[in-house]
Design a protein around this nucleic acid. Sequence first.
DNA 1: AGCTATAGATGTACTATACAACTACCCGGA
DNA 2: TCCGGGTAGTTGTATAGTACATCTATAGCT
Lengths: 166, 166
Amino acid sequence: MTDSETRHREAVDAIQREMTVFARRARAFAGRLHPELTLVSYTLLAHLEDSGGCLAKDLAVRYGLDKSTVSRQVQALERLGFLERRPAPEDHRAQMLHLTPAGTDILAQVTESRHAAVAERLAGWGDADVAGFAELLIRYNAGPETSGDGSITQEYSNPDIAETVR
Amino acid sequence: MTDSETRHREAVDAIQREMTVFARRARAFAGRLHPELTLVSYTLLAHLEDSGGCLAKDLAVRYGLDKSTVSRQVQALERLGFLERRPAPEDHRAQMLHLTPAGTDILAQVTESRHAAVAERLAGWGDADVAGFAELLIRYNAGPETSGDGSITQEYSNPDIAETVR
DNA sequence: AGCTATAGATGTACTATACAACTACCCGGA
DNA sequence: TCCGGGTAGTTGTATAGTACATCTATAGCT
């Protein structure tokens, strides 16, 4: 193995390790930040905002969750008053999910908290590094252009790619 | 707000969003990759390897987990034959945890799988980008040098800083 | 009309987690 | 010396998130 190959392997290992560190902290982190909204709830509400309303099925496909999981999450978010269901006129099996004003509100609050937490970690970074980090993360999450990421099934990975490049 | 400030804010938002995307996928991802070892189990075993053996307390502090959680994780890993407990000679309340050969083995396998998954996502990246991404992630996880990350308590954040720069 | 596919809800089970209470042990001071 | 407060770990209990299987109602094609 050449020096360059060794360096490359070590960098990949570092990325693997650091992503693991981050992932391990993320949920507890999100929970402490805003007990009202878990990481998943936050993501679901955020998608409702982005999409301007969608079906539970869409959320399940996009985030690789079982439809039963989404069904219960939606129930909980409805109970909290953050979203409402409206009968879909064109398909009586489905229901359009929409953010309520309260949902829009809490989403903005949580987004702001998360933004602040990230900004604090980035304190002292140069603009170029911040911009570069953002770009590399987007590229990483988008995954190989050649479809499929070798670890999750096709149906799961594609919607995520769609999301990150939206 | 100047153009530069706007660009900066958008980059921070992108980082926040991409980290969220990543975190949401990580656990399910880890589970599919190696059902034997969850993300947490993997991290605990990895720390045993790095440290050459430690106490359950150390794991709890380092990873911000409750000692009961660690206790049960350790039980499970012992049942699977991946670690063993040895009475600590200098403190009879405590027990040193050590990887077994089977534990060392599975850890190597999972590390390899994770490495491969990451490498696949990085396929087509230039060496400089890979190295730069690794460096930025390490810096991000290490957090602001000024101690405390504004989101978790002091006791939790420090061990993690220690870990990422070990 | 009838068959199959789909959106969602519900029953059930499992895992990870936290908090509280408990046991066993450690150590420093009166 | 033993007593009290601190510490390592276990166990009881509760909760959240998740998946899989099953069920209902509806859609849409032939």
